[in-house]
């Protein structure tokens, strides 16, 4: 892999089995197995996807619902393993997907900072050092000692965002998270992301909104039913996408 490539996606494919009825108990499985009735419908959520993102490039992923955008993000962030092909990443990744998914509801905000931080692979020393910064940025104040189950969804995602962005990432994976919390916090989070942009972070950004992609990205791809249909500078791709959707 060349030095200036941040993410290399090569011939990636993801295959799901769609069985007509879900077989998740032993009896059914045995019966179907004996009758050789275990049929699956194959479904490729992604197929033959290849592209490189160079360091500092900001790539927008466009596509309709069910075109494989989120699956692609999951593959790049390592949650899903591709059925075919390889993914290589170069640098620290901060996936801002479904913020606060790793929270434990019984735990207080303080405890969750350490737990979620550990889930993201941070060390204890790092979290000790950044603790105040995280609390400050989330604007939770004294609520940090309250169990997360009593948080509003806005508070939860504010905390999640603050934890996930405290690390200085090389690669940022965004899934329409710019709409976090109230207007004030949204502004704050956008500023934070913008400041990362200025530092030259590589971005993979998924959105329905063409406007947002145009504003944030310099490159774009279009996915359609799991296939890569266009890849290039954002202006060109945006034009193609407009034609597609109209």
């Amino acid at each position: 892999m060349q030095k200036d490539v941040a993410i290399q996606v090569k011939d990636v494919g993801i295959r799901f089995h769609l069985s007509q009825e879900r077989v998740d108990n032993l009896k059914e499985y045995m019966i179907k197995f004996l009758r050789r009735d275990l049929k699956y419908n194959e479904f490729w959520a992604l197929k033959d996807i290849s592209f490189d993102i160079l360091k500092g490039q900001r790539l927008g992923v466009l596509g309709l619902n069910g075109s494989g955008k989120s699956t692609l993000l999951k593959v790049v962030s390592g949650v899903l393993k591709p059925t075919a092909g390889t993914i290589r990443t170069n640098g620290v990744i901060a996936p801002l997907l479904e913020l606060g998914a790793g929270f434990s509801p019984e735990y207080t905000g303080r405890e969750n900072i350490y737990l979620y931080g550990a889930v993201l692979g941070y060390t204890k020393d790092f979290l000790d050092e950044k603790f105040d910064e995280i609390v400050d940025f989330s604007g939770l104040g004294k609520f940090i000692e309250v169990p997360v189950k009593n948080y509003s969804s806005g508070m939860k995602s504010r905390l999640g965002f603050s934890i996930a962005t405290v690390v200085e990432p090389d690669i940022l994976i965004l899934d329409e998270v710019l709409s976090v919390g109230d207007k004030k916090f949204r502004k704050k989070s956008e500023n934070k992301i913008m400041s990362m942009f200025d530092k030259g972070v590589t971005v993979l950004f998924v959105s329905h909104s063409l406007e947002q992609v145009k504003r944030l990205c310099d490159q774009a791809i279009i996915l359609d039913s799991g296939r890569l249909v266009a890849h290039g500078p954002v202006e060109k791709v945006a034009r193609v996408y407009k034609e597609m959707t109209e």
């Binding site: 434990s104 019984e106 735990y107 405890e111 350490y114 737990l115 550990a118 889930v119 692979g121 941070y122 060390t123 204890k124």
Partner: peptide
């Protein structure tokens, strides 16, 4: 080794929450 700290956090969490 990278996730050693997570392991510790999860163990502590399981014990803490059991008796909270």
């Amino acid at each position: 080794l990278k996730y050693k700290y997570l392991l510790k956090e999860l163990v502590v969490k399981n014990i803490k929450l059991k008796y909270r």
